[in-house]
Design a protein around this nucleic acid. Sequence first.
DNA 1: ATGTATGCAAACCATTTGCAATGAC
DNA 2: GTCATTGCAAATGGTTTGCATACAT
Lengths: 171, 171
Amino acid sequence: MRFLPLHPHQMKEDVKVTVKNILTNYLEQNQLRKTPERFAILDAVYSINGHFTLEELGDRLNDKNRFPVSRATLYNTLKLFMELRLVIRHRFQGSTKYEACYDNNSHSHQICTVCGRVTEFKSQKINEALASVHLKRFRKDGFSLYVYGICSTCQAKLTKQAMKRKLEKSQ
Amino acid sequence: MRFLPLHPHQMKEDVKVTVKNILTNYLEQNQLRKTPERFAILDAVYSINGHFTLEELGDRLNDKNRFPVSRATLYNTLKLFMELRLVIRHRFQGSTKYEACYDNNSHSHQICTVCGRVTEFKSQKINEALASVHLKRFRKDGFSLYVYGICSTCQAKLTKQAMKRKLEKSQ
DNA sequence: ATGTATGCAAACCATTTGCAATGAC
DNA sequence: GTCATTGCAAATGGTTTGCATACAT
């Protein structure tokens, strides 16, 4: 008999097992091949906390896991994982980041449009609103919310600049 | 004396005037140049309903407005407009789309991850939740919400395929 | 007159594609 | 043995950059 976890989310290792099962089932049901690359990449993805680039994923597999995988395969596999909703892709300005999203789909991103910094936040209200939205002829599977704005650091710099300009003009 | 509009949103031509003023003020305050290209592009952007590609914007300026503008300038100008929050960029899978966003920032996008179709929807609840979220040390200026899922057409196809596969297996 | 903005072409770079070799089934 | 998958290298295509020219101030 297993005790229910105290934490609302699954433990990290449990999540790994679950997503591995999802992948296995999908591959079997679609007569695709259970290659070691696919499982190594999945494990690496679910070992990383937060966002990562394709580059970083490749490096991790190479350095830490001693399991080098080609760029092409990384692209192929991440595409497969996105279809399975095991991974989500964010195309931030300048860089594309990926993120494990099974059991990790309830946070949003705030993006400073000046410095480009991306921070995560959670909002119960937004999640509730999202859950309550009914979309006709559409099965919701996930979401990405990006809130754009200006962080206080950049705002301060802008204000300073504006003051300086005003001063120069009046002289 | 002007009557208040009955409609909660500004009329299209009013919006054009407003955004033109925003641009003019910004250019003047930052000693940038009020080039005809910038105003032609702004007008074109605010004449298009919904999403458009850079290509389409260029074509429209060329064909309809008889005001050809180079690719480089389109990129430069759209970047400027994005900083001014007059335009928002969506990087959908496969294609980058732009959209006028002044007075047009309250809708979300639903995206079918199978066929890639993008549809807009509005949700009062989501807008309220968004408005109520307080982000520390951050001035919210806008947002993009993408809801991913599967549209009923694609869902039907998938179900059909799965049934077919099952049938073949059992034979 | 000054220096910003445009337009062209070249450079860049992330992603995709084609194809031969590998290996899962 | 068959054919999906990998890995390499080449191609692609959207975006950026460098620079000479045009033109807004």
